[in-house]
């Protein structure tokens, strides 16, 4: 399961039985072409965000702009309060959401993992069944709203708190790293269940917990769906939804500008952020992920492979 070790092993295999040189060159060309396609849009967005507005209006978005400028980032920071508030919201949601969901996941999957826990099968079924059947979107939204999840942080955290898929991943981590005798001997030493879990089991299962925490943190950082369903107050927007709404507002004004014959809508449109500014905001959102990505990637790979294979 450790990709680095696997690659090292693959590198060591005998040279006599590997693909021929021309074949390998072709493989490199095909793979590299696909890889470039994977990161090209990202590079394009960065270039646009550094393109001077005059270049945009004459030749549009281009990989080779006529003039460069960091103005978009200047005006991005001038957006001021709404942007910082969204940034703050995203951080709060990600931190609290990740912390809570990891805690819930550890405890629930620990119970699913313990063979000597008589209600293990019942709780496992309760979680698994929701992966296959649900009430549907409208009833879920209406129930959540009725429970008070409306225009508050709870609405942006609680509906995504639990993922049965993460329970499976975590339980598998427990299965592969914790021996039953360890738990038994802890119990004989008089350790209570909570003490055993948090003082003995959790430190051993750290890599698994890191995987779950990263999956959750990414889900919360990338979330716009909960905001779409439960939030209509601008001060509560997380970053992703802020970006999404920015586009919607501009489209709306453009459409109405034609109908209303310009005037007010056109003026409002002129005050709206420029094209390059929106791309700068995109970059601003993706950059934290891009920088953290090389470090967290292998944890997620480990988690996903385990979750999918379900040993």
């Amino acid at each position: 399961m450790n990709p680095e070790k696997e690659y090292a092993r693959m590198g060591k295999r005998s040279i006599t039985n590997s693909v021929s040189l021309p074949a390998e060159v072709i493989i490199h060309i095909i793979t590299a072409a696909f890889v470039i396609c994977c990161i090209l849009p990202f590079i394009f967005i960065i270039i646009i965000s550094f393109t001077e507005e005059s270049s945009l209006s004459s030749i549009g978005y281009s990989f080779f702009p006529q003039a460069w400028s960091a103005e978009a980032y200047d005006s991005l920071f001038k957006v001021g309060r709404p942007l910082w508030l969204s940034f703050f919201n995203s951080i709060v949601i990600t931190v609290i959401g990740t912390g809570l969901s990891v805690l819930v996941c550890i405890m629930y999957s620990y119970g699913m993992f313990r063979r000597d826990y008589p209600y293990r099968k019942f709780f496992t079924f309760i979680a698994f069944f929701t992966m296959m059947f649900g009430g549907g979107l409208a009833p879920t939204v209406m129930v959540c709203r009725a429970l008070g999840l409306n225009n508050n942080y709870a609405a942006l955290i609680i509906p995504a708190l639990v993922s049965p898929f993460n329970f499976i991943v975590m339980r598998t981590f427990f299965k592969t790293s914790i021996s039953e005798s360890l738990i038994e001997s802890a119990a004989l030493d008089g350790s209570g269940e909570f003490n055993t879990l948090f003082k003995i089991v959790v430190p051993i299962a750290k890599p698994g917990i890191a995987t779950i925490a990263l999956l959750n943190a990414l889900a919360y950082w990338n979330d716009w769906y909960l905001a779409l369903l439960y939030v209509d107050v601008r001060d509560m927007y997380p970053l992703q939804y802020f970006l999404m709404q920015m586009q919607n507002n501009i489209e709306f004004l453009k459409r109405n500008a034609a109908i209303m014959g310009g005037g007010v809508a056109m003026e409002a449109l002129a005050e709206m952020p420029s094209e390059s500014l929106r791309m700068a905001l995109c970059v601003f959102i993706v950059v934290p992920i891009a920088f953290a990505y090389p470090f967290f990637q292998r944890y997620i790979v480990a988690g996903l492979t385990i979750g999918a294979v379900k040993e």
Partner: peptide
């Protein structure tokens, strides 16, 4: 032991009941 483990299931269980099972009645 059973009581302690059941307490551990409660946060997830309550969430599943409220956010997943309650809407099924909808």
């Amino acid at each position: 032991k059973i009581f302690a483990l059941t307490m551990m299931m409660m946060p997830g269980f309550i969430w599943l009941l409220l956010i997943r099972y309650l809407p099924m009645f909808g």
